[in-house]
Simulated assay, not measured.
Amino acid sequence: MRTFVILFIFCLIRVGDPQLPDSVILLQNKNGVCNGIETPEEKWLQDRDVFQVFSQTVEQDFYESDRNCVVSLVGKVGYQWEIRVNKFDVEGTTSPDGVPIQCNDFVKIYDSLRCDNAKLLKGINFKTGLCGTLKESEIGQLIFTTCANKLTIQFKTDVHQTFRRGFAFELKQYPWSNPTGGPDCDPDLNGIVAGVWRDGTFNEFQNTWNEQPIIPGYVSSGTETDYDKEIDGIQCYECTSCPVEPFDPKKDGTAKGNNCYVCSKVWDDEYYKAMRKCYTRTNYLSVIESIREIDEPFLGCQKTVDDFGRSVNYCFCDSDLCNKSGRMMISYVVTSLTLCISVLYTLIL
Rank of each mutant, 00 (worst) to 15 (best):
R2T: 03
L7R: 11
L12I: 04
L12H: 06
I13H: 09
R14A: 13
V15H: 15
P18A: 14
D22P: 05
D22A: 11
L26K: 10
V33T: 09
G36Y: 08
P40I: 00
W44K: 13
D47E: 13
V50A: 14
D61Q: 12
S65I: 01
L73F: 07
K76M: 00
D89S: 13
D89M: 05
V90Q: 03
E91P: 00
S95W: 02
P100Y: 10
N104P: 02
V107W: 05
I109S: 03
S112F: 01
R114Y: 07
N117V: 04
K119T: 02
K122Q: 13
K122R: 11
F126T: 00
K127G: 05
G129V: 03
E136F: 09
F144Q: 09
K156V: 05
T162K: 12
T162I: 01
F163T: 01
R164L: 05
R164V: 04
R165K: 15
F169P: 00
F169E: 01
Y174T: 08
Y174Q: 10
W176G: 00
C185L: 00
D188T: 12
L189T: 06
W197M: 06
R198A: 08
F202I: 01
E204A: 06
F205R: 08
P216R: 04
Y218L: 09
Y218E: 10
I231Y: 07
I231K: 11
I234G: 04
C236F: 08
C236P: 04
Y237H: 02
T240R: 13
T254V: 09
N259K: 14
D268P: 08
M275F: 04
N283L: 12
Y284W: 10
I288N: 07
E289A: 14
S290C: 03
L299T: 14
L299N: 13
C301H: 01
Q302P: 03
T304K: 07
T304Y: 14
V305N: 14
V305L: 13
D307F: 15
G309P: 09
N313D: 08
C315D: 07
S319A: 06
D320T: 03
D320K: 10
N323C: 06
R327F: 05
I330E: 10
I330D: 10
Y332L: 01
Y332Q: 13
V334G: 08
L347A: 07
